[in-house]
Every structure is written in structure tokens, then in C-alpha cells.
Simulated scan of single mutants.
Amino acid sequence: MPAQALDAARDTVGGAADAAAELSETVGADLLATARYACTAGFHTAPAVSAVPALATAAVVAVLLRHIPAIGSEGSAAAAAPDEHCPAPGARRPAPGGGSGTVRQRADAASGASWPVRRPRT
């Protein structure tokens, strides 16, 4: 078998099928069956290997964040009234850095998104 066909057979199932077409019927069938098995085994192995660090990360996060209350539950910061760091949309507050303008929340009527807008004082 040419080296180029052998490299193609190692890379993809399609390459193995092309290489198998150049070989005798029994050897080609064995090559194609092996390539299909390797591809299927890879599809089963990759998620299993990925699940281990994902579960370990979830366990570490659960342990490290267990003392933080859920959003909206009593005692959470999100359930508290807004303060000066989180003004209501449309509220005026001094510009950051002591600038000469003010910062307002500007809302997009179509999407409902808002962002701060710095306007100079007149």
C-alpha cells in the first residue's frame, strides 16, 4: 500500500475506504472494518473522558459556593433594594472619575437593553 494511502487511512474513515478500494477484497474489508471500529470507539471514549473533569469541576464549584445564597432567596444581594452602585434605569448619577457630565441609563425601546451614556453638562 502506498504511504500516502496509508496516511489517509489513518486520518479519516473516508481515507480508509479509498485505501481499501486499492487493496484485495479481504484485506480491504478488514481495513475498512478496523477504521469504522476506531471511529466509533473514539465517539464513545471522548465523552467518557470529558465527563470526568466536568463532574470534578461541578463538585468543586458546589463545595466552594455552598455558602452563597441562591438568587432571589432571602439574604441574597439580588433580593435587596437597589443601591447607588445599581441605579434604576433613567436615574441620573455623577459621571465616573469626577467628570463634568452625568451618566444616565439609556434604554433601547426595541430590545429593552440599557447601557450607560455620558452626556456633557450644559
Rank of each mutant, 00 (worst) to 15 (best):
D83I: 11
A81P: 10
A78P: 00
C86S: 14
A95D: 12
R36L: 11
P89H: 01
R92S: 08
P89S: 00
H85N: 14
L32I: 02
A35G: 03
V60F: 11
A41K: 11
A48H: 06
A38M: 10
H67K: 13
A38S: 12
A48K: 05
G90Y: 09
V63S: 12
A70S: 12
G97V: 02
A77Y: 10
V61K: 15
D30Y: 01
A91R: 03
A62I: 02
V60N: 05
I68P: 00
P96I: 05
S73C: 11
R93G: 08
V49Q: 14
A29R: 05
A91L: 05
R92W: 01
P82R: 15
A54E: 14
L64V: 13
G97Y: 07
G90K: 01
L65P: 00
E74F: 05
E74W: 08
A35D: 01
A59L: 14
H44G: 14
C86G: 03
A80P: 01
A77Q: 12
D30V: 00
D83A: 08
A95T: 03
L65S: 09
P94A: 06
P89K: 01
C39W: 07
G42E: 07
L32N: 00
L32H: 06
V63E: 15
V60A: 12
P94W: 11
A48C: 01
A70M: 13
L65T: 13
H67V: 09
V63T: 13
A88H: 01
E84K: 15
A62V: 03
A91M: 10
A38T: 05
L64I: 07
S76C: 10
A79C: 04
T40I: 09
V61M: 15
G97H: 03
A41N: 10
H44Q: 08
P53H: 04
